[in-house]
Simulated assay, not measured.
Amino acid sequence: MRIHRPALAALIAAALPLAASAHVGVDGGLHHGFVTGFLHPLTGADHLAAMVAVGLWSALTARRAWPDLLWAPLGFAGMLLAGALAGLAGLQLPGVEPMIAASLLVLGLLVFTQRRLPALAAAALVGAFAVFHGIAHGHELAGESGAALMLAGMLAATVLLHAIGIAVGWTLRHTHRWLPRVAGAAVAVFGVALLGGLA
């Protein structure tokens, strides 16, 4: 059986930590427009892994391509934007970092088990986690000029990462099903490691 190289490459990218982080204060607020906003989720291993995992999970558990593939990604992207706007407005929520780490654990386990949830429940679950990812981004962008362009860039990158996860998951859903399980386990372990580092 042949393994699709692009699919394998995307899975590896989703599973490996990238050493960079995308949390409050880490980059000193060095954001500049759409391109920087677009690159922001791509340089934070936690955000990248979560967004690809959402797409993977959606594709692996969808009963049909439309509209099942879109519920969780749309829930995540919409609530990410809401959280980022709240962060820009100065809203503070407790436990942002632990919730981001917990999101990796939960999303990784969902990919690993390929557990199917009703569409609205899936959107609500990932959306709740996305709020905390968005808050972290919003706090970084607070006070920056061009925040709207940066948010647009971040949202575009989020949609792209979801699409990569969906494409990989859809390709592998009937063949090589162990590959997404490995990726899910890696994301879950990454979440546990982050939670352990916060203890």
Rank of each mutant, 00 (worst) to 15 (best):
H4N: 15
H4I: 11
H4E: 15
P6R: 07
A7N: 10
A7W: 01
L8S: 11
L8C: 09
L11K: 06
A13H: 01
A14K: 00
A22V: 10
A22I: 03
H23A: 12
H23W: 07
D27I: 12
F34A: 13
F34Y: 13
F34G: 13
F34V: 13
V35C: 03
G37P: 07
L39V: 14
H40G: 06
T43Y: 03
G44Q: 00
A49F: 00
A59D: 02
T61D: 04
A62H: 05
R63I: 02
P67F: 04
D68G: 15
A72E: 03
L74G: 10
G78Q: 02
L80F: 15
L88N: 07
G90S: 13
L91S: 11
L91R: 11
L91M: 15
G95S: 09
V96A: 09
P98T: 04
I100P: 05
L109H: 03
V111Q: 08
F112G: 12
F112T: 14
Q114I: 01
Q114L: 06
A122H: 00
A130T: 04
H139D: 08
E144R: 15
S145P: 10
G146I: 06
L151T: 10
G153F: 01
G153M: 03
L155I: 11
A156K: 05
H162G: 01
I166P: 02
V168Y: 00
T171I: 05
P180N: 06
V182K: 06
V182D: 05
A183M: 04
A183F: 01
G184K: 09
A186F: 02
A188I: 09
G191V: 08
A199Y: 05
A199L: 14
A199S: 14
